[in-house]
């Protein structure tokens, strides 16, 4: 058996299990969808939209960031936590699929789910009046990089602490980042003392990069991408050093 075949088989099973869990999937999709509509149609949140940019552009940038955060970070950390608790990772570790293969398969299925969610959000944004531009093509690349970065951190969190603790932390960190992580409200629009810290977070880096692309927000995109790569490296390093299988 080639290891690629084993990894693809495992990713297919992981994906089937996620897609079958309809309620969960709906919930993870419903939150960013509702947010997209609310942000576009009302101005209850200041999106810091530059003049000449429509609200839906900025809203799409925000909800894509939410989708990557919830899909690649939170859902991944939760699934790792559950599978550690049930012993599912241990059972897989006794099969010909290598341990690295188990993690690569889970990364693949996670990325596919995030891309599916992003596709639904982009379609919904189009219905709300969003029009793609050339710069928007970079969006796909940034979504993939952001998934990689937050996914690496999801593995790090899911595998480093006790399984029960990782379940609680994954949800808690998601909520904090959602409201004050530079996701919806850019770090530059937060109180200065908070923004100074938040701008270094991966959620803010991803949010800013997507805003630069989609909503012509000012800012150094190179720095944001560099930050995402640095966080990805940190996530991989923590995972390699501390990942526990049960």
């Amino acid at each position: 058996m080639s290891s690629t075949y084993l990894v693809v088989s495992q990713a297919r099973l992981d994906l089937r299990i996620v897609l079958r869990n309809g309620e969960q999937l709906l919930l993870t999709l419903l939150i960013p969808l509702a947010l997209l509509i609310a942000l576009t149609l009302s101005d209850f949140v200041s999106l810091d939209v530059p003049t000449g940019v429509s609200r839906v552009d900025a809203a799409l940038a925000a909800v894509l960031t939410v989708a990557v955060l919830s899909g690649a970070f939170t859902s991944l950390a939760l699934s790792i936590g559950f599978d550690r608790r049930s012993g599912a990772l241990l059972l897989l570790a006794t099969t010909p699929l290598s341990r690295t293969g188990i993690l690569v398969a889970r990364s693949l299925s996670t990325l596919i789910v995030v891309l599916l969610q992003a596709a639904v959000l982009v379609a919904a944004a189009a219905l709300l009046g969003w029009r793609p531009s050339v710069a928007a093509f970079g969006t796909l690349g940034v979504v993939v990089l952001g998934s990689f970065s937050l996914g690496a951190l999801g593995f790090a969190l899911g595998g480093a602490v006790r399984a029960e603790a990782s379940l609680a932390l994954a949800n808690g960190i998601f909520l904090v980042l959602l409201f004050a992580g530079g996701v919806v409200v850019p770090a530059s629009a937060l109180p200065a003392w908070l923004g100074a810290v938040v701008q270094w977070l991966p959620s803010a880096a991803l949010g800013d990069a997507l805003r630069s692309l989609l909503a012509a927000a000012p800012g150094a995109m190179g720095l944001d991408l560099g930050l995402l790569i640095a966080w990805a490296a940190l996530g991989v390093l923590i995972t390699a050093r501390t990942f526990k299988w049960d």
Partner: peptide, 18 residues
Amino acid sequence: ARQALHVMLQEEGLPTGA
């Protein structure tokens, strides 16, 4: 060894959604 030794764990380790 992973190819030739099959293990049934006490905690089973079946993915709960499968």
